[in-house]
């Protein structure tokens, strides 16, 4: 598969069916998990609960935060001060690693990358897409962001300032996109439906209201 579409990163393996031989690293994962449970580093229940928590995270939580920020200026101010605290007001546990909101505005566009690895606000918007972890995105987003955005179908006016934020293990970013024109009559649920994962990374704009 990887050869067939001609790029240089390996794709994570697809789920094994029951009788497929496990890979070396899959065996390593199961062995490490088993040893850590046996040694009491964490319990099997804690591992199960964490797996469920990972599955429960999706861009929908981030979209709720963005939609509330669009609808409520005071909340928006709190998001810009402290995303994790603002998310917790909506019952969302965004974890303890600080997330900083970077707001788009007329003439200003923000883009998030992690050049060194793959830091991403996982506890707010779920696991990152493959391209976010790719060599191409990590290398080029900081050097030619406009060209990268063009590949995503986002053509920015030359006078628009582009700010690229390089994430770290200790600080993650969330783009607060501009509220789309024509969305004045929408309630928060309808607003949240306009907020995609990519517009919270900065590679897209929110959907246009129907």
């Amino acid at each position: 598969m990887a050869e067939a579409h001609g790029h240089d990163h390996a794709h994570p393996h697809q789920p094994d069916i029951e009788d497929a031989a496990p890979s070396h690293y899959q065996l390593m994962t199961e062995a490490v998990a088993g040893l850590l449970v046996e040694k009491g580093v964490f319990t099997a229940d804690a591992l199960r609960a964490m797996l469920e928590a990972i599955d429960a995270k999706s861009p929908a939580d981030g979209a709720r935060v963005v939609a509330r920020a669009w609808a409520d200026d005071a909340f928006r101010t709190r998001v810009l001060e402290d995303v994790n605290a603002a998310a917790s007001e909506l019952g969302i546990d965004a974890g303890s690693i600080p997330i900083r909101a970077v707001a788009n505005a007329p003439g200003l566009h923000n883009l998030v990358v992690c050049t060194l690895c793959s830091c991403y606000p996982r506890l707010l918007i779920g696991l990152p897409p493959d391209w976010y972890k790719s060599r191409a995105y990590r290398s080029r987003a900081v050097r030619e962001p406009r060209a990268v955005l063009r590949e995503f179908g986002l053509e920015l006016p030359t006078e628009t300032v582009v700010r690229v934020h390089d994430s770290t293990a200790d600080l993650r970013y969330l783009v607060l996109p501009e509220r789309p024109a024509g969305s004045d009559s929408l309630d928060e649920d309808a607003l949240a439906a306009l907020v995609t994962r990519d517009c919270m990374i900065g590679t897209a704009r929110p959907r246009a209201p129907a």
């Binding site: 579409h5 790719s134 990590r138 290398s139 080029r140 987003a141 590949e151 995503f152």
Partner: peptide, 10 residues
């Protein structure tokens, strides 16, 4: 960061 690379396979 900043190196040349091919198109992003988004």
């Amino acid at each position: 960061g900043g190196l040349d690379a091919g198109p992003v396979d988004h």
